[in-house]
């Protein structure tokens, strides 16, 4: 019950956040210099055509009126027409988002699991060569941009070892399973096309790993420092002095409090994966939303840009609600503290 109230509250807040975000991004998009109509039609289009498009897009109206028109349509699920693809933005998002989401999900899973495992090993074997190795890896992971990893991996695994494909979502010729979620691995699993599933997974591997490297390094560092911090806490000494076996202390009493900061940071890292995916999608020729959004921005495709950013905002909000739920579950200080202030 408490959880349901919490979620409901957060969803109500989210609505306001989204409204705020939409106003902000709408304004920024409109005040940026440039001529959207002209860019959409090209430099050789006659002036009257440009003027008509401006009229159609309400670009001659004041900002408030423009927002009113946009919001009215948006509430009906219509985010306008992309100036570049000439199709409904909502359609475009439905087409491109699943690819990005799939990539991000796998990157997020890899990031979380590997980050926590590396961090835990590093924390347990504090100040040994294993720990030093993990720390070096995490520093490299943090300072190296994901596209560098991507290019490196493509070179090693794609061209030298030739064990992973480096382009697209499926090997050409493999039939896409029926569209349900539009995320190929899930569609393949649901419909039982396991060969397709593995093919898609292979295609996902390199982009997901390169995308996840930075966050993974971050997770590992946070987990490690929480562990090395907590292991010297009085409560661990106290549990030891009560004769609780080392294994129980390590896996139960030490891990739970140490994962709390990791998971808080994980939420932020996960949400930023979507935005960071742009270069990865470009390098691996991945038909995703990040790339679509970046193109929209470069070409002043107002409607597409606004909608993409709203989608990212929505993902960010959902991820953070989930993270807060997990952290609240793990940490009574937060769960009960929040209750007290209510």
């Amino acid at each position: 019950m408490r959880t349901i109230i919490f979620i409901a509250k957060r969803l109500v807040y989210s609505v306001f956040v989204l409204i705020g975000l939409s106003i902000l991004i709408f304004t920024i998009a409109r005040v940026m210099p440039g001529h959207p109509a002209r860019m959409a039609l090209g430099s050789r289009a006659p002036d009257w055509a440009v003027e008509r498009l401006r009229e159609e897009m309400h670009l001659n109206e004041s900002l408030y009126v423009q927002y009113y028109y946009w919001a009215k349509d948006a509430l009906h699920g219509d985010f306008g027409v992309s100036l570049v693809t000439r199709r409904g933005v909502a359609n475009d998002i439905r087409e491109f988002f699943p690819a990005s989401l799939e990539l991000t999900l796998y990157a997020g899973i890899f990031m979380g699991i590997m980050g926590i495992i590396l961090g835990t090993i590093s924390g347990w074997y504090n100040n040994t060569w294993i720990d030093n190795l993990v720390r070096i890896i995490s520093y490299i992971g943090i300072v190296t941009p994901s596209f560098v990893f991507a290019i490196f991996f493509v070179l090693i695994f794609g061209y030298v070892l030739e064990i992973f494909p480096t382009m697209g979502r499926l090997t050409p010729g493999v039939v896409h399973p029926p569209l349900i979620t539009k995320m190929i691995t899930f569609d393949a699993l649901i419909t039982g096309h396991f060969a397709v599933f593995f093919d898609a997974l292979k295609h996902l591997f390199l982009p997901a790993v390169s995308l996840a490297m930075g966050g993974m390094a971050q997770e590992a560092r946070i987990t490690r420092s929480a562990l090395t911090d907590n292991v010297n806490k009085d409560y661990i000494a106290s549990e030891r002095s009560c004769g609780i076996p080392e294994r129980t202390i390590m896996f139960k009493y030490l891990l739970k409090p140490s994962f709390i900061p990791t998971i808080s940071i994980y939420g932020l890292d996960f949400a930023s994966l979507l935005g960071n995916a742009f270069l990865i999608e470009l390098i691996f020729n991945w038909p995703g939303l990040s790339r679509y959004g970046m193109n929209a921005m470069l070409r002043k495709d107002l409607n597409a840009m606004t909608a993409v950013i709203l989608v990212f905002g929505l993902v960010f909000i959902i991820v953070n609600i989930i993270v807060d739920l997990i952290v609240g579950y793990l940490d009574p200080r937060i769960r009960l503290g929040a209750e007290r202030t209510q």
Partner: peptide, 21 residues
């Protein structure tokens, strides 16, 4: 020895109890 024979009570009871259990 720790289970049965010797035990220790710590200075600060707040720090000596695991906050998340």
């Amino acid at each position: 020895l720790r289970k049965k024979e010797i035990s220790m009570i710590f200075q600060d009871p707040t720090a000596a109890l695991n906050p998340v259990f």
